[in-house]
Amino acid sequence: MTMTFQDSQNAFASALLHPDLPLPHGITTARGTADPLRFAIYRNNVHVSLTMALAQRFPVTQRLVGSDFFTGMARVYAADHKPASPLMMHYGDDFPAFIAAFPPAASVAYLADVAQIEVAWSEAYHAADGPPLEIAQLAAIAPERIADLVVIPHLSTRLVRSDFPVGSIWSAHQDETVMPVGEWRAEAVLIVRPEMQVEIRILPEGDGEFLACLLGGATLGDAAEAAFAVAADFDFGSALTGLTMLGAFSAFEPSEGEVS
């Protein structure tokens, strides 16, 4: 039987990805015999390079569960999720969703959300550059127009909201010595890179709701109302200037419904 080049490459890849399959037809050595150990080097290279790529992108997730557990979990993920392209910076975009549904990790309920912060961190790191909105530009807007404006988020802006203090957990694991996490509560975490440094900020509850609404396309007025509804102490002025100073926005513009 003759196989085409494409057939034999498919067979090689299948055997590579499924250790239960026999060795691909036609591989040999200088001794003239197929050597499973040599083929296993390629199998191992694929698995190790993919799990290493995940370990690099998810260092805090790895610290939280230890490298043995992490490697095992990454191997299960990698078995069914190959990178969509050679751009390894994107590999693992859906690893948080996988973790959330991975039964052995269920006891670490916050793990998937911490992993989501790490996805957001690398997205922000590689996002297109652009000048964030300056606070002076905000001051130039006529007060009566503000409520009807919508924001154009900075291209690096990401928001992760969790039932757990994942921003505090992430921060506590940046240094060698892990600091205890103070209050065990829900957190909204802003991840943004206005210049060359990725910034991570835990937002007050009302600000988190406010930003979530803005990123969803709500006007400043509607977003403020929603924020008041969840946090009576929400301060519109300080939330808006605070988020602007953090670089979360690149522009304000009239909402589509507005007649100018």
């Binding site: 080049f5 034999s8 490459q9 498919n10 090689f12 890849a13 590579l16 990805l17 036609g26 390629y42 290279n45 694929v46 390079s49 993919l50 790529a53 999720h81 190959k82 990178p83 969509a84 392209s85 050679p86 390894m88």
Partner: peptide
């Protein structure tokens, strides 16, 4: 490259 995605290794060819 393979149908399942990028294999992240340099594989040999005949």
């Amino acid at each position: 490259t393979h149908d399942s995605g990028f294999l992240n290794d340099l594989l040999p060819l005949p």
